[in-house]
Simulated assay, not measured.
Amino acid sequence: MAWNLLLLAWLVALVSTLSALFIGEVMGQAPCVLCWFQRAFMFPLAVILAIACYRSDFGIWRYALPLTAIGAALAFAHTLLYAGLIPQPIQPCTATGPSCSGAEMTVFGVVPLPVLALFAFILIAILLILIRRRTTQ
């Protein structure tokens, strides 16, 4: 059962990584500053979770959970920024790069990308916590 959870965590990270690459490279949508930071935490998860699956390393939660937590915190801040709950003066995006809260930050014009990233990080965190509970007793 723990191996299935590990596989699912890797698949979430892999789909998130491939989706980010598709949006940036195929669709041509440049990532904003916060998207780059979120990618910096999601991309390694796809790699280390794949290795953990291959090796059946259920202790991976020790290394992956901190990456997931930091990525989720960034995605949460990005979601608040997108929703307009973070004041303008502390927004990290500049006038020279893509907007962190513009209309192009959505999938099909409906679902905000920061919300999808937050969901992915939270799902991976939940799976890692379940792995920890099932393997350390």
Rank of each mutant, 00 (worst) to 15 (best):
W10T: 10
L11I: 10
V12R: 00
V12I: 15
A13I: 00
L14K: 08
S16G: 15
S16E: 03
S16A: 15
S16P: 00
A20H: 10
I23Y: 12
I23S: 12
G24A: 10
Q29D: 12
Q29V: 13
V33K: 04
L34F: 06
L34Q: 05
C35Y: 00
W36F: 08
A40H: 01
F41H: 06
P44W: 10
L45V: 04
A46Q: 04
V47M: 09
V47N: 05
I48H: 09
I48P: 05
A50H: 03
A50R: 09
A50P: 07
I51Q: 12
C53R: 06
C53A: 15
S56W: 03
S56C: 08
W61L: 04
R62N: 12
Y63E: 13
Y63M: 13
A64L: 01
P66G: 14
L67R: 04
I70T: 11
G71R: 01
A72G: 15
A73H: 04
A75Y: 00
F76A: 15
A77K: 03
H78L: 09
H78A: 15
T79D: 09
L81R: 02
G84N: 03
L85P: 03
L85I: 10
I86C: 03
P87R: 13
P87F: 11
P89S: 12
P89V: 04
Q91S: 11
T94S: 13
P98F: 09
S99M: 05
C100A: 09
S101Y: 12
E104K: 10
E104Y: 11
T106H: 01
G109H: 07
G109F: 01
V110C: 05
V111S: 04
P112W: 01
P114Q: 13
P114L: 03
F119H: 05
F119S: 12
A120P: 01
A120C: 09
I122P: 01
I126S: 08
I126G: 10
L128E: 00
L128S: 03
L130Y: 12
